[in-house]
Nucleic acid binder design. Structure first.
Lengths: 128, 128
DNA sequence: GATTAATGCAACTTTTTGGTTGCATTTAAT
DNA sequence: ATTAAATGCAACCAAAAAGTTGCATTAATC
């Protein structure tokens, strides 16, 4: 036998994609790290409302200082998850969902790869 | 008018769900934080292959010490992303994809909420 | 022009993280 | 019984993160 039917090739492709992304993408871990803080997750949940919010507005929902919030927003911005626009004396922040989409796709890929692996293991067990 | 058609209610439900999850889930930020490191992402990519791997095996793919890898595995375990089984003098690690699925669903929710918000803004702009 | 609101910038402290080394322990193999 | 392999455990270190305070700056408003 060839050892490679169609579904096997797709499975290997998926596995290679996943490893390639994880190995090469400098920013992916950064995105996850940016999401890995309760304060920043709350900020994102607020920004999901779609508008552009000032630092003062965003600080109102937190327990920490305005400068602390600014630092968190900067972390999110460095990860490409939010962006800011200047308007008068205000600095408005809004969501930039591209990187979050990318992170979501990676998690989907992990889930798919896991499913593929389970299927393989099951097939192996049944062949024994 | 009522101000609440069917799609608006679904949108609000989604928004409330998102805020509830972000506010209450202590572990969600932990999961993202666990994913937010290149070494740990690579470990996960390896574990996606489906098997159970020893610490020594997992160390082979990295640049850091065995004890360093153990620490990373412990972080992943604390986040519920991997689990270990003892087998003889080895300690085998495998993926536990439940929390990753949960994280993925959160990112999906963020994306949906964002889309809903854009639709609302568009409708508002057209009504003006 | 003086005031005030919103923010920027910088120094500083504390805690966490990522990593190491050294040695002890457990278990398999000879 | 000895030896070797795989791991556990603890101390330690450096760098980064999370947060603060104080003061400077910018830009509306009266």
């Amino acid at each position: 036998m060839s050892g490679h039917n169609d579904s096997t090739m797709h499975a290997n492709q998926n596995e290679n994609d996943l490893h390639a992304i994880v190995q090469t993408s400098e920013t992916l871990a950064n995105v996850f790290a940016a999401l890995g803080d309760p304060t920043r997750l709350k900020l994102i949940a607020v920004l999901c409302a779609g508008g552009a919010f000032s630092i003062a507005q965003l600080t109102a929902n937190t327990e920490i200082s305005r400068q602390g919030v600014t630092k968190h927003l900067q972390v999110l911005a460095d990860a490409g998850v939010v962006r800011d626009v200047k308007l008068g004396r205000e600095r408005l922040w809004q969501l930039e969902p591209g990187q979050i989409e990318e992170a979501k796709r990676t998690l989907e890929m992990i889930g798919r790869q896991w499913d593929v692996a389970l299927t393989k293991l099951k097939a192996f067990a049944e062949s024994a």
